[in-house]
């Protein structure tokens, strides 16, 4: 379970996240939605232990993200948006480095990684330097890096970015299987249609605050809108200066 209580994050005088409270249950795919600069990525970075909250608390499977950061890192898999990888390393060398940080046995890693690489059609490319990869191939490496240690919680920031259709479909299946196994997926994206279809519940963040929360169908029904995008536009336009 993920529990976020009264979370605030400031950059200097700018408040990116303002008093956010949420809880996400095991076996759930939770979508984080919001316009650019709403605070989605900052929230995910706090969950992934990259940033510390200014105030408030975040617990993942009852572990505090600040005081027990390394324990949290062992059970999460994080796919950042717009990350640059080491161009000079091969995909395999990069994945091995991360596997070593998780202290995984090399045979165990291979057994987990090979099916992922095959599914993402990346097996032949893993021995080439990352510098020669396309954007989609780099994204696949990031996804394998987040999945190879079989984390209990997946934190994904725009995970479909650059992926071809086959890889997108495969990722969606992985996420559904992950949730079905009782694990958590937090999925941040701008693509409403994917979030609407994939996520059990969504949280719409606007200007650092939680504007709405619930299953997409329930939110549409409660607010009397025809489509999810109409609801999203109304919620995110309401307090725009």
């Amino acid at each position: 379970m993920i529990q976020i209580q009264n979370l605030t994050r400031r950059y200097g005088t700018f408040e990116a996240v303002r008093g956010l409270s949420l809880s996400i249950s095991d076996g759930e795919i939770f979508g984080l939605l919001g316009p650019n600069g709403a605070g989605k990525s900052t929230t995910l970075k706090i969950l992934a232990t990259l940033l510390k909250p200014t105030t408030g608390s975040v617990r993942i499977q009852n572990l505090d993200v600040v005081s027990q950061a390394n324990d949290v890192r062992r059970i999460i898999g994080y796919v950042p948006e717009g990350a640059e990888l080491y161009d000079a390393l091969t995909g395999e060398e990069f994945l091995n480095m991360l596997a070593d940080l998780h202290r995984l046995d090399p045979r165990q890693v291979r057994a987990r990684r090979d099916p992922l690489a095959q599914a993402f059609d990346l097996t032949a490319e893993l021995n080439r330097p990352i510098g020669g990869y396309s954007k989609g191939m780099k994204q696949k490496v990031l996804l394998i890096a987040a999945l190879q240690h079989q984390p209990e919680v997946l934190l994904l920031d725009e995970p479909l970015d650059g992926l071809d259709v086959a890889a997108q479909e495969h990722l969606k299946k992985i996420l559904r299987d992950h949730a079905a196994a009782g694990k958590i997926v937090v999925y941040s994206s701008h693509i409403l249609e994917v979030v609407e279809r994939l996520c059990d519940r969504v949280g719409i963040i606007h200007q650092g605050r939680l504007a709405a929360e619930g299953s997409p169908a329930r939110l549409i029904e409660e607010n009397g809108h025809g489509t999810f995008s109409e609801l999203f536009l109304e919620l995110t336009a309401a307090s725009t200066p």
């Binding site: 992934a48 232990t49 990259l50 390394n70 890192r73 062992r74 999460i76 898999g77 994080y78 950042p80 717009g82 990350a83 990888l85 991360l98 940080l101 998780h102 202290r103 990031l142 890096a145 934190l155």
Partner: peptide, 8 residues
Amino acid sequence: LVLAAHPH
């Protein structure tokens, strides 16, 4: 961005 979410 890539390394920090892994144990270190």
